[in-house]
Design a protein around this nucleic acid. Structure first.
Lengths: 340, 340
DNA sequence: AACCTATCTGTATACGCTTTCAGAATCCAA
DNA sequence: TTGGATTCTGAAAGCGTATACAGATAGGTT
């Protein structure tokens, strides 16, 4: 079939083990032999078989990606491509490849992960989300399989290497920003409440509201899916209030797009009638009209650091877990108005 | 270390080969033994080692994805997540996993592909783009490695299974649509000219223009990258003409967003001053204001069919190459105006 | 010349699974 | 009871690589 180490060995007139050592660049092989073997490899067009190598080696040079369970929906959010780009960049630096298993239901995803882990298809896993009581995360911990999380683990955060923004602080600061613009009725448009990021930000929001001496009103809090439809629903609920908010803190730019177009339909304009501040700063947020004031959470870097952390876990298993906080930054555009 | 086939064999009091046959669901094994073995597997929490299996089997149950060489940029285009979602859906149906190798430069990508192929990391490859004289495509053909292409191969199209829209026809029809609205000065905002899709559409556009008895003007043709910046550049060039177009046929919604925001800045409005018709119908195209009239090219299905075709290639190597044409559909929204 | 190091290379086995081939067990007809 | 067909199972040889261990070679010392 294809060229093996033995063919190379024969041609170079050495033993297979020698060839293997040349591949591994083992210092015990003389330069002369190395050259000879390399020539033979070149001549035959030899390429090592990864499966054989993995088997002997117990390592695959691949890392697995776990997407949130509604993989199809989520993939539409530019957050994921961008975070994957970050992961992929780091992975590539160390010659790791990416492996994705997919599925539509919760169970399928879980099964996919089990196969990745038990089948030794990957050396470690990056979880692209963090939510309350996640089965997959529990499983990985039980197996003590190397993994890192993007977002804060709901429990055992100390013993799991994770990468996130300080979402509590971010939400608090952003709420304070809106307060500083004179808004006192600030709505919170959150995503799925099972996601830790939603919880953290809600707490930050609450903190800021209370610090300002305002009362925290449940009716100003709305939770929807992270997509544009979510944004649309949210607006309807909030505007139906007798005293509707003058500003919204929205968890995702995509939801903001939904909010924006719904407001448009209702004949309300941003920021004149209502201000919008959202998170993620995806590429398109500067192109909408009005352009969105948004928190740049450095998605690329989240991915990059997550992969980096994972590779550390893999390469030095002893190391204690750590947390990396990726900085965030408010990008002011046109969707917030000073009402003072 | 972990549980192997031997452990299961020992517990079930059979030979390893029997266990292997149970896994493969070989009909030559009696139901009784199967049950016994399955219980043992269950009890021990056995999972087959994929590397060992691949090695013995010469198959990996994984398919590789090749992104265009500027992987980082391209990933930002919603086209890719969506096409990957399609691929992933099909792959999952047949229990295949996805494998991505990445790189920043042309050479890195190529090296990645070689490693995937020679290292037997994947059973086949889906090329997510098609362009003129592509090194990777040539390589795959030389190696007669199973692969399919999304888009039309520049050469040897007959011998390569590929999935695309009929882009020539699509562009022709869309140009005719604009003509039917009364536009006679139609600009063509194309993407990278190395991409076959750009060429096909340009030809379709030209055909429609000539059929209508209009003259084909070079100055109405602009080529930019497929991103928003591209859109911005394009507008500036076209509006500088002494007789600027009244309608633009834009190759990608993302470019249209760029066009839209640039026009905004220049104080021109769509569709009053200029009409916009673009391709892809990405999720956000209905949310912009005005919402975009766009050609839905069924990105998901492109991916789905590409994966399906690939799996056929893999599973029955003899089969002749085929072409699948995915239908397209014009989605009329607000960005085109009837000027008759 | 004999011996010892230091350096390099080869032999053999393991990694976990699949598969060929042969052999054992079972069953039924003669 | 024997023979032959049929069904099921096991032993063993790969798949292509890594590595422990032993062996060979070269170089230097006494």
């Amino acid at each position: 079939m294809s060229v093996t180490i033995k063919d190379v060995a024969k041609l170079a007139d050495v033993a297979p083990s020698t060839v293997s050592r040349v591949i591994a660049n083992n210092p015990r092989i003389s330069e002369k032999t190395k050259r000879k073997v390399k020539e033979a490899m070149e001549y035959l067009g030899y390429h090592p078989n990864f499966n054989a190598r993995s088997l002997a080696n117990r390592s695959t040079q691949a890392i697995g990606l776990v997407m949130p369970s509604s993989a199809d929906k989520a993939f539409q959010n530019p957050f994921f491509p961008e975070v994957i780009r970050g992961i992929s960049t780091m992975a590539h630096e160390q010659e790791y490849a990416l492996y994705m298993s997919t599925g539509n239901t919760e169970d399928e995803i879980f099964e996919g992960v089990v196969r990745m882990v038990q089948g030794r298809r990957v050396d470690g896993i990056v979880m692209l989300y963090s939510r309350v009581d996640d089965r997959i995360m529990c499983y990985l911990q039980e197996q003590s399989f190397p993994f890192t999380v993007i977002g804060k683990p709901f429990k055992n955060a100390d013993s799991i290497t994770h990468i996130d923004n300080d979402n509590f602080k971010a939400a608090q600061e952003m709420t304070e920003y809106l307060l500083s613009l004179g808004h006192e009725r600030i709505g919170f448009v959150g995503g799925n409440l099972n996601l830790v990021v939603t919880i953290d930000r809600l707490l930050g929001y609450e903190k800021a509201i209370r610090n300002a001496g305002l009362s925290y009103k449940d009716e100003y809090i709305v939770h929807e899916e992270f997509l544009k439809e979510g944004g649309q629903e949210a607006v309807k609920e909030l505007l139906a209030l007798e005293n509707p908010p003058s500003a919204l803190l929205v968890m995702d730019d995509l939801m903001s797009f939904g909010v924006l177009s719904t407001l448009n339909e209702l004949g309300l304009s941003v920021p004149e009638d209502i201000s919008l501040l959202s998170f993620n700063n995806v590429m398109l947020s500067e192109l909408s009209s009005p352009s969105l004031t948004s928190v740049d959470i450095n998605i690329f870097q989240l991915g990059y650091e997550a992969a980096k952390g994972l590779l550390e876990c893999i390469q030095s298993p002893g190391k204690p877990a750590k947390r990396v906080a990726v900085p965030f930054e408010l990008i002011e555009r046109q969707s917030c108005k000073n009402v003072k």
